[in-house]
Amino acid sequence: MSYRTKLTNTLIICCFCIFLGHGQMISRSELNDSIQNFSYFTIHKDNYFISGFPLTNDINSNTADAKYQISFKQMITRDRLPWETYLFITYTQKAFWNIYKDSYPFRDINFNPSLVLGKTVFDKNQKLEGIATIAFEHESNGRDSIYSRSWNRITASYITNLTKRTVAEFKAWVPFGYQNGNPELLEYTGLAEINLEHELKKNRLYLNVLLRKGLNFKAKGAFRPRLYFAPFGKNTSNQYIMVEWYWGHGESLLEYEEFRSMIRFGYVIKSNEFNFFRMKN
Rank of each mutant, 00 (worst) to 15 (best):
T5D: 05
K6Y: 01
L11R: 00
L11G: 03
C14I: 10
C14Y: 10
H22D: 12
G23V: 07
I26D: 01
I26E: 05
S27C: 07
S27I: 03
D33S: 13
I35F: 01
Q36I: 03
N37F: 04
F38G: 04
T42L: 08
I43H: 10
H44M: 08
H44R: 09
D46T: 06
F53T: 14
L55H: 10
T56H: 13
S61T: 11
T63H: 06
Y68F: 15
S71V: 07
S71P: 06
S71T: 09
Q74Y: 10
Q74I: 12
T77V: 09
D79G: 15
D79V: 07
R80A: 15
L81P: 04
W83A: 14
E84W: 08
E84H: 15
T85L: 03
F88E: 09
I89Q: 12
T90K: 08
T90W: 02
T90S: 13
T92F: 00
Q93I: 05
N98Q: 14
N98G: 08
Y100W: 12
Y100N: 14
Y100G: 08
K101S: 12
P105K: 07
F106D: 11
R107H: 12
R107A: 14
I109A: 11
N110Y: 00
S114N: 08
L115C: 07
V116H: 00
K119W: 00
T120R: 05
V121G: 08
D123T: 02
K124Q: 13
K127M: 06
K127N: 10
E129I: 03
G130N: 05
G130P: 01
T133P: 01
F136N: 08
E139H: 04
E139A: 07
S140Y: 01
N141S: 10
N141M: 06
S145K: 12
R149G: 00
T155W: 06
A156M: 11
Y158E: 09
T163A: 11
K164N: 10
R165W: 04
R165E: 08
A168T: 04
E169F: 01
Y178G: 05
L186K: 06
L186C: 09
T189P: 03
G190E: 02
A192G: 11
N195K: 07
L196P: 00
E197L: 02
L200F: 10
K202R: 15
N203Y: 02
N203V: 01
L205G: 04
Y206F: 15
Y206G: 02
V209S: 04
V209F: 02
L210V: 11
L211P: 01
F217L: 03
K218F: 00
A219S: 11
L227G: 01
L227E: 02
L227I: 10
F229N: 05
F229Y: 15
A230H: 07
K234I: 05
N235L: 05
S237I: 05
E244D: 09
W245H: 11
W245I: 07
W245G: 03
G248K: 00
H249V: 02
L254Q: 13
E255C: 05
E257K: 15
E258C: 07
R260L: 09
R264Q: 15
G266Y: 04
V268I: 15
V268W: 02
V268M: 06
V268T: 15
I269Y: 12
N272A: 13
N272C: 09
E273Q: 13
F277S: 03
R278S: 06
K280R: 14
K280L: 15
